[in-house]
């Protein structure tokens, strides 16, 4: 079978590769991924407007949006609902829950962006996007992805934690251990030569073994 007659199989973005580019209608006008260049972007999809789990997620994400923007991070939502549905839902969230939604939401009725990012999970729903989260760095590279099923609301603390860990990793060339929170000790990358293995013991870190040393993050 040649490539022209092969069925199109949607592929997921891969970590470390450029995020698929798009231009789409949003509640903040027509936006392209390129418009966010220089900022971190958290692109996330939700199954449907006017549903309770998605509403709780939007409220919690809206609460952390100002803190994220201070860190150079922009939120960008997406579902296959129309612009008018998005606008009505956002107004309803403000009216019923007192929460403004400060971030744009893509109206992906033709599923173009959802297909690019592998947000559709046909075994779960043929018509709704799953709860996907993509962390895209200021250079437009996919750095992390999280997928949740339709029935499980996302942990917004974890979303914030992931972007904070990625930013720290970039700034200080360290790794973050399990359950790391800002202020916790970080992992020093393991040495790669025999001389550096020998030197590691006296490097002033919290030393368990040459391949397992931790230190305080720089402030």
């Amino acid at each position: 079978m040649d490539s022209l007659s092969s069925p199109q199989i949607p592929t997921l973005p891969r970590l470390g590769e450029p995020a698929p580019v798009f231009e789409a209608e949003t509640t903040h006008g027509r936006l392209s991924l390129e418009d966010f260049r220089g900022s971190w972007v958290i692109l996330f999809s939700h199954p449907a407007d006017f549903t309770p789990v998605c509403t709780t997620e939007f409220i919690e994400l809206a609460k952390v949006a100002p803190r994220l923007r201070e860190k150079g991070v922009e939120l960008l939502g997406l579902s296959i609902d129309s612009i008018y549905s998005h606008l009505a839902w956002i107004e309803t969230i403000k009216e019923k829950f007192g929460q403004e939604i400060p971030f744009p939401v893509i109206a992906d009725g033709d599923r173009k962006v959802a297909q690019l990012y592998g947000m559709m999970m046909p075994a779960q729903s043929g018509t709704e996007t799953s709860r996907c989260v993509f962390f895209i760095d200021p250079n437009g590279v996919v750095r992390a992805m999280i997928y949740y099923p339709l029935t499980t609301g996302r942990n917004v603390d974890e979303i914030v934690r992931v972007v904070e860990a990625l930013q720290l990793t970039d700034e200080q060339k360290v790794a973050t251990p399990a359950n790391w929170r800002p202020g916790d000790k970080v992992i020093v990358p393991a040495p790669r030569t025999v001389e550096d293995v020998a030197a590691r013991k006296s490097a002033g870190h919290d030393y368990v073994d040459w391949w397992f040393t931790m230190t305080d993050a720089k402030r």
Binding site: H28, G29, R30, L31, S32, E34, D35, F36, G38, S39, R69, E74
Partner: peptide
Amino acid sequence: PLYRIRATLR
């Protein structure tokens, strides 16, 4: 936000 400025300029 800068992303809205860029989009509007485009």
